[in-house]
Design a protein around this nucleic acid. Sequence first.
DNA 1: GCATTATTTGAGGATGGACTCAAATACGTC
DNA 2: GACGTATTTGAGTCCATCCTCAAATAATGC
Lengths: 219, 219
Amino acid sequence: MDSNTSRAKRTPLQPLRSAGRQRVEELLAAASDLMAERGYEATTMAEIAARAGAKIGSLYRFFPNKEAVADALVQRHIAILEDEYAALAKRAATLSPEALADILIELLVTLHPRVKSLSALMEARTDKMEIRDRARGHAVAGIAAALRVCAPGLDEALAKDMAAVVLNTMKVLRSMLANDAPTTSGAPDELRRMNRLYLSDRLAPFRRGSDNATDGKTR
Amino acid sequence: MDSNTSRAKRTPLQPLRSAGRQRVEELLAAASDLMAERGYEATTMAEIAARAGAKIGSLYRFFPNKEAVADALVQRHIAILEDEYAALAKRAATLSPEALADILIELLVTLHPRVKSLSALMEARTDKMEIRDRARGHAVAGIAAALRVCAPGLDEALAKDMAAVVLNTMKVLRSMLANDAPTTSGAPDELRRMNRLYLSDRLAPFRRGSDNATDGKTR
DNA sequence: GCATTATTTGAGGATGGACTCAAATACGTC
DNA sequence: GACGTATTTGAGTCCATCCTCAAATAATGC
């Protein structure tokens, strides 16, 4: 009966049939949407179940408590983000700084919903922050690696600092595209411009054949 | 007895003596701190009273409900932010783009706690978003005005787009300085550098005496 | 000092939301 | 079709938190 670890609150109870696995997917999707919309605290377990088309009992079959739902979401989002950033460096080899800047921007735009949900989850507990920091470290490392592939000879510490800057620039674009701000419709393009300008200026000294560093039109 | 407006939930009951006014200050300060730390939902009315050195009854004497506390805080923060941005344009007349960039950055760093508290409050209700948007509009308008003072002839729409970019850049620095990220200690400086680079590049064509646009050391 | 009014207090009422569990139902396998 | 197990259900418990209110206390004006 108590063959499970006695340290867990209860049995985690993972799904064993396809119906259960699908239910878990629906529940997590509903929880992700709701928590991204309203935040962790404001989202109720009953709401999560309702949006997933289930009853609250089903929710508690697969997740011992509300925190476990948040944990599952965090883990899931982190894993996907790590994959994306790990894949980034491989694409960076043949790119100009300007093209790399644009690709980085595009990447975070597509990752937007997931990151937003993640930051909403962080509201919940401080002890999850270290997980977020770990993910951030992966992102920074991935971007820094891409920068150094693009510009060999770039100092590693500087690459990380620059990666942190670019990462946050991407976050900004994300929030610009999220809020519909009618007064600043040209702002996203300005941001891209700033990003290109910055990477172009900082990577120019380290590029191969740096005779024409000011012109970035490689294709 | 019901001489007050019949549309309000109850009588707002503003303080009439100095003791009451001070209590309101203490209560709002406590609420601001707690909600910035833990978020709106996670902050309880009892906690607010306790941190202010009061009992829950006193809190409810001056605020009919929790939402009213949030409203008061939002209003207060917005007013101060509007003042700061309105004062900005007056300082911008004699500055170089690079110096303006640095001053803008410094400004948002000092405004950090207030903005953080504000965004925590926004978690509460969607209908407060329009207030936030209004504040954002003031900020963008203030920065855009400063840019045009610094660079006459700059198109107004472009100035607003650039202002939005700079505003968000300031937000980024804010979050960089908040989280202690040991791996990227040089990132804030890199961000300042990007900001200077961007403003310098974009404002150069519009500056008076634009013969030495690349050098920004005005003093 | 006395009357009046503002402020404080804290025990409860009401509500909502996290979580339980025993019984019913659907599914998979033989 | 029968059996065992996974899944579903939803009424019910518990408790934290929002909020009330009548009585106590402190401040102010005369």
